[in-house]
Design a protein around this nucleic acid. Sequence first.
RNA 1: GCCUUGGUAGCUCAGUGGUAGAGCGCAUCCUUGGUAAGGAUGAGGUCGGCGGUUCAACCCCGCUCUUGGGCUCCA
Length: 635
Amino acid sequence: MKIDIEGNSVEFENNLNVGEILCKLKYDNSVIGALVDGELRDISYQPKKNVTLVPVRENSKEGLDLIRHTAAHALAEAVQSIYPNTKVTIGPVIENGFYYDFYTEKNFTEEDLELFEKKMLEIINGKKPIIKKIINKNDALSMFGKMGEFFKEEIINDLDDNQEISIYSQGNWFDLCRGPHAPNTSYIKAFKLLNVAGSYWRGDEQRESLQRIYGTAFFNKKDLKKYLLMLEEAKKRDHRKLGKELNLFSITEEIGPGLILWHPNGATVRTIIEDYWKNRHMEAGYQIVYTPHVAKASLWETSGHSEFYRENMFTQMVIDKNKYEIKPMNCPFHIMIYKSELRSYKDLPVKFAEIGTVYRYERSGVLHGLFRARGFTQDDAHIFCTLDQIELEVDQVIDLTTRFLKAFGFSDYEIFVSTRPKRYVGSKDEWVQATNALKSSLKNKGLKFSIDEGGGAFYGPKIDLKIKDVIGRSWQCSTIQVDFNLPKRFDLNYISRNNDRLQPVMIHRAIFGSFERFFGILVEHYAGAFPFWLAPLQVKILTVSEEQLDYSDSLKKELDKIKLRVDIDKRNEKLGLKIREAEVGKTPYILTVGKSEMENKTVNVRQYGGKQIGEIKFKDFVSMMKKDIRKGDSL
RNA sequence: GCCUUGGUAGCUCAGUGGUAGAGCGCAUCCUUGGUAAGGAUGAGGUCGGCGGUUCAACCCCGCUCUUGGGCUCCA
């Protein structure tokens, strides 16, 4: 048997397992598994034919998967040893760790997690070898049947008859498991159980409800610590917490869940974003429109929302015997504006843009601050164009999108192109042309993208953009969707060069997705310390004593003239306190004025974060500010 | 929606079967201070809402509203 390994091709006798092969090649035991023809395998895996073997060492992505899977088993053993009536279900590896779902009467608490951790530590320190055993279906069924592990029985029953069934044991404890695992428990050098949550067997709310324990594991304490710090950092940046602290927005019981009050500070930021948005869109040839928040039910029947989007729509209302719906989307309105006059091919593309507030019924459990609300405002636009114009239009949308993202501090993103699903409208040719247009726009710009095969909506292919924030989390915001469906439903047309009536294509697109969500992301991205052009309050003037009240007023007056957002802290408080509060409020520039500044016509400048610029002439500060304002404009 | 967790002053949170506390904030006063919290006094709560158990409920029970964590990344 021939094994290709790290550039060498070596002949071996048959019936050797990966570990034995590696041993003969003098690999040490930092190798804990292997990619065999690209598939992650145990060290005990026995290749049946010539294969390519890539050793998986500690501290690799695959290595982490191995120990996390093993950690999940350690957790399951710990839980069953402490609460023997608990039934196990599944315990997979996930992006940043693992979880295990249990079926039990007991409600796991924080204290339980500590108990489990202690027990896990014993198991791990026991350095128990992990042994894989292949068994036949009948044995598997009777084995797990006897143990009363009925979820495992169900899994086994669902397996194909010819599928290999394996169990993995660590000491006396074992689990039905596909593997792969680390060679023994001691490779888990650092782990932590994070939280308990509810879940359902197979994600089905009709089935048994389970308790899920989330955890994570690493090869060393340092990595674990780093990860836990990241979680803490994320907690510190939580927009709901900062929203309260910085007085940006609120959600109150009196008004209702998922409905947002934008307080003056938040609204200031939003206004700046909206102004920026409108200006850039008008420059890019969009026409700004406004549309109502409700419309007759018949409009939504034509659009298909009543049928396909019903479960996300609020309850219908009846006005003067006519049925009305609150809008979950803006598209039908933009379509009606398109239809308000006869369009010529010379008019295309027509681009309508709206900062349009929509209302969607979201299940109560999924609401989450600004990220998932029931009333939110889309930065919506619809481009009506011909099939041939798609590429150029998408090109421009991408330019606009990347410019926006850069302006708001996001330069890292992933792009996905979703193609034709099984169920679709339009012709195959149209799909091919539109999909190719999307791809070639991206290619021409040298932007990398992945294909989500069959992931498109039934009405057309799309491009989705996921941005990465400063602590490495991804957020889906921008989307560009081609639509063959609505033009058909609304019988849209334009007069062609040959005087025919032809149907335009629609492109739905949003850059932020929603202002609420994007604002929430911004808050977390900047940890509440907005860049100068977005900061609700840009400059705070602090008086040292009462003597500077008039001087501070005169400064504010000058700064108002150049449209800065300025406040004076005139309170009868010590300077230290004023500084502290200005810093806590994350104000970009803090101007301290005392006796000396007043006499010299200067200000003492401190930037957010404690950076001292020192005492400078006030007129120099003004010209410095003028430059900073222009910076915002040029984004 | 379902599982689970919390709901006490504007905010952050203690607390007990015998009708409530701290810090911050707020008001008033003293202090006129120089780069991350000066001091004093005071106001402020039907302990989420409704119902029940009890001599007595913020506390126990039921319902309801609401917050947070989650609800296939598959043995």
